[in-house]
């Protein structure tokens, strides 16, 4: 009877996946400007936008700036898409952890268009977003993304976006 190979140590798995996420999101200045973070559970990513005063777009309400919301959705979409796109290569070892930790990555997808619907005003508190890749093609991909605050079932904004994918072999 053939023995199954021993599973990888969990630490090694986490290090590799966190390195991939870090390489994608860690070096982007605009992500730091907004204070955006990503939470990773397996291959699922959640964008987190901790509230701060300079995200306000309507000081009277107050409400989060629509542009911040759009950027948050777009960023979550592009990082989720890239992460999924890299996943197999990272898992199979085609992309090495050391390369990722040095920040060596294939090019990111480019946004072709982005349509955002504002469903409610963004309250002055933390927001969360998750994206779903609805089509992952060789040249183009489509992504849906939703953001919510207190209640997952009451999103305050959603968007669909199309991306031009980088070439696989560069």
């Amino acid at each position: 009877m053939a023995r199954r190979p021993r599973p990888e140590p969990v630490q090694q798995v986490k290090q590799r996946r966190d390195a991939a996420l870090n390489a994608l999101a860690g070096g982007v200045p605009y992500i730091q400007t907004l204070g955006l973070q990503f939470d990773r559970r397996g291959d699922e990513l959640t964008g987190i936008l901790p509230f701060k005063d300079d995200l306000i777009g309507n000081p009277i309400l107050p409400a989060i700036h629509g542009g911040v919301t759009a950027a948050f959705l777009e960023m979550t979409a592009i990082i989720t898409l890239s992460y999924q796109w890299l996943w197999e290569d990272v898992e199979s070892g085609a992309i090495l952890v050391e390369e990722l930790e040095r920040g060596e990555l294939p090019r990111l997808p480019k946004t072709i268009d982005f349509t955002v619907d504002y469903l409610r005003s963004g309250l002055p508190r933390d927001a969360y977003a998750r994206a779903r890749v609805t089509r992952s093609g060789r040249r183009y991909s489509s992504v849906m993304v939703e953001a919510w605050q207190d209640n997952r079932d009451r999103p305050f904004a959603m968007a669909t976006a199309h991306f031009l994918m980088p070439r696989r072999d560069g």
């Binding site: 605009y30 542009g67 911040v68 950027a71 982005f114």
Partner: peptide
């Protein structure tokens, strides 16, 4: 970043 351009267009 496209998001910054979005914020500008929205404003």
């Amino acid at each position: 970043h496209g998001g910054a351009v979005s914020a500008l267009m929205d404003t």
